[in-house]
Design a protein around this nucleic acid. Structure first.
Lengths: 214, 214, 214, 214
DNA sequence: GATGAATGAGTCTTCATTCAT
DNA sequence: AATGAATGAAGACTCATTCAT
């Protein structure tokens, strides 16, 4: 037998689980939860269907495990990028860079998280929402809290929760856009968003742009 | 036969089509494209399945027609709200108000457009993207063009297309948030977004808030 | 198209349901609940599988409906045979004759009821037990009550419930035996059982009980 | 390694086989042949699945071996109880007592033999029938032969084989009933059955037969 | 114009069984 | 001797879609 085949046989469980999850993320990201078939996942994984069920459970279980693994990866990637010793705007910028780098490096992970996780409904939506919330808290705490400290919370023109939702939406939407424009670097993407949310259009129009300082 | 039954029978085609589309939007918005069943749509519409196929084609056709009808409605609602004689920021604010009013008034339309249209993939994604593009062009032209006129287009810190995508994402995300907070008026939602994109966090933190002037 | 095919197409629901139940009883009786496949039932019924699910529900539902229909048939057959104006022993004899006639005429019904219903467990066992109980009450009331009236209930040598169970078991077991001996008439079968249990009961009723002597 | 683990490893084949058979009887009796899974049996036995196949063959083989072992046990238990020096009725009574004691002591054995063996069909049915036959011959020979000697075999009202079948059925059915009434002793159960069938046979042997009168 | 009746095709899931170590 | 790893085969169930009336 060739070494190739040797390598693929009788692997320890942990390795197989990773293989399967990798294949599942790939297939789910391409076809979406409903259209994806366990048959295709097993083919891509190079593993028979029963293994999937033995190791990872039902299709829904499998999807949940994909979502959780990729979400954890994403959050860790962002957290690793943030540098707490820097001023708030730079922290935000670094966080965003990490985010866009992750999206570029792991398109499929991002697609599964952003696009496909919504299509199942119910339990997953809740999980995804929780992650979005954690994400926004992680990244936007800097900004929103800054505002809150100044008593903005009382003004109708301001709402931490609402603005957070908007900010996350903006970042995600730009990430999608970036998927079709791979030539734009993560630093630039992060800068655009900074200019939008940090300075606002008004300042932009005045020629006042935000730039990273460190 | 009673008049009740009479009314349900032998209706002109246009009326039947509307009935069916209404039911389809309702069911698609609740369950999503894949989980929705033609059986349920026909039940909700009070029409047998063969009628649906005769009048509106396959499930995919039906979904496409839902998307198109609701997208048209949304765009018209926004366009009706914009007042070209006002200054750019007020135009933007009015456009956003109309948008949020529409989302509140026609939850199902919005849900189908925003959430469910993504789950099908391929052909629909393109169509939806086209509509988002039209939307962003319609609403954000004001801002972007203003910036462009000042030569911002040449700076790496600025990208009309990218920022537009971000802006639309922010507006959509806030719309979703608003679905769970029906007590927040469309005017307030629009103001929040104005403060985010028009002034930026920086000005906000300085206590400088944007307010509608007309 | 031939008339044969004509007859098989577009039948009203009630007719199809009967066809399917007939086929199901046949297949279940031959293979048992677990080994029987919906595919085979649909083939035997001359109907596609979806029809079965549409009309009669899941495999378990289908089986339950078989059991209930056949049980009802059996009980009715027995009830029709009993002649209340006759003395108790003759009533019992006629009831048994009807029972054995039914078993001979509808082997499959009997097989499903007696053999296969036990194999599913849980819900069905209860239902079958209820029917056995009704059966024994129906047929053996004559005998047992006769005994009870004479104060037998107080004796350890007697137990209405236990003896009823034994009697039913005897009748069923003889029915199974009869399936392999179709030449023995229902009248003879009934007589055998009468001689086994009636003479026994008769002595019992007279207060003549058997007791161990060593 | 601990002694505990030591004890579980490298056991002589005979011991392993017994372990497995014990587990199999337990699982088969609880779930029935089809619903029982080899996985569960191997778990209960504390042995890996390949061992089962190596030692005892396929699922069907395993089941057959269960049946045979338990049937042998049952027959031996009954035989041990019978005392050939006593008169026929007492022999019968002792045999029945042994039977009911076995059923009470080894519920699972009895359940597998009586309930589950029927659900497989074909080959097993034959085997079980053979055992029932041996059982009836063993226990009822006394009675039936007594009758046969008196020339009863020629009468339509009598049939050794048929009555035997009925008698076995009665005994089995009462055994099932006894499973739900553990407070009734084996002696009482045996007495009930004696009263049902012995007094009946007794009259039969005396030539006193019941005949329909109308 | 309108529909009850009917199905082909495909999906998830399970289980007995066997390698390779 | 013993087992974790692996799968072929099969079964229940569903759904978009179309006749025949």
């Amino acid at each position: 037998m060739t070494e190739e085949v040797q390598r693929a046989r009788r692997l320890p469980r942990a390795v197989r689980e990773r293989q399967i999850l990798d294949a599942a993320v790939q297939v789910f990201s391409r076809y979406g939860y409903h259209t994806a078939s366990m048959d295709e996942i097993s083919e891509v994984a190079g593993v028979s269907k029963p293994m999937i069920y033995t190791y990872l459970g039902s299709k829904e279980d499998l999807f949940a495990k994909c979502i959780r693994r990729e979400a954890t990866r994403l959050l860790e990637a962002i957290q690793d990028g943030v540098k707490p010793e820097l001023p708030p705007d730079m922290q935000l910028w670094h966080g965003l860079r990490s985010f866009y780098r992750f999206v570029a490096d792991f398109r499929e992970s991002w697609t599964v998280l952003h696009r496909q996780a919504l299509t199942v409904g119910g339990e997953f939506a809740a999980e995804i929402t929780a992650m979005r919330t954690r994400a926004i808290e992680l990244v936007a705490a800097l900004v929103v809290n800054a505002g809150a400290r100044k008593g903005l919370a009382e003004q109708a023109e301001f709402s931490g929760e609402g603005l957070s939702a908007a900010l996350v939406g903006a970042a995600e939407s730009l990430a999608d856009w970036a998927l079709d424009h791979p030539d734009v670097s993560d630093g630039v993407l992060a800068s655009w968003l900074m200019n939008l949310v940090w300075l606002g259009f008004n300042d932009l129009v005045e020629g006042d742009v935000w730039k990273p300082t460190a």
